[in-house]
Amino acid sequence: MYFIGCIPIFDTFIFGEPVRSIGTTFCLWTTKQKNWQIGEVENYEDNSEEMLNIFDGQPQIYIDWATDYFEESYKESGIPLDTVTKIYGGQTLTKEMVLSIVDELEDWEQLETDLNEIGYPYNFD
Rank of each mutant, 00 (worst) to 15 (best):
E112M: 13
E42W: 08
S48N: 11
K86R: 15
E72N: 14
L105F: 15
G90I: 09
F55P: 01
S77M: 06
F26M: 11
E106V: 11
I7M: 12
Q60L: 06
W108S: 09
Q110S: 12
E45F: 13
L105E: 15
N35H: 11
Q110W: 04
Y120M: 09
D46M: 06
I101R: 01
N123D: 15
V98L: 15
Y2W: 07
Q37D: 09
Q58A: 10
D46F: 06
V41N: 11
I61P: 01
T83S: 03
F26N: 07
K86D: 05
I22F: 08
L93V: 10
N35F: 09
T83M: 01
L115F: 03
L105R: 13
C6K: 15
K95S: 12
E45V: 07
D103W: 05
N47L: 11
I118D: 03
Y88G: 01
S48G: 13
D114E: 15
V41Y: 04
E104A: 10
T31E: 07
S73D: 10
T30I: 07
E117F: 13
K86N: 14
W65P: 02
L81C: 00
D56S: 13
Y69M: 06
F3Y: 14
L111T: 05
D107S: 15
E72Y: 13
V41Q: 14
D64Y: 03
Q58T: 14
V102D: 03
L93K: 02
D11M: 04
F13I: 15
Q37V: 04
Y88Q: 03
G57A: 07
P18K: 08
Q110H: 05
Q37L: 12
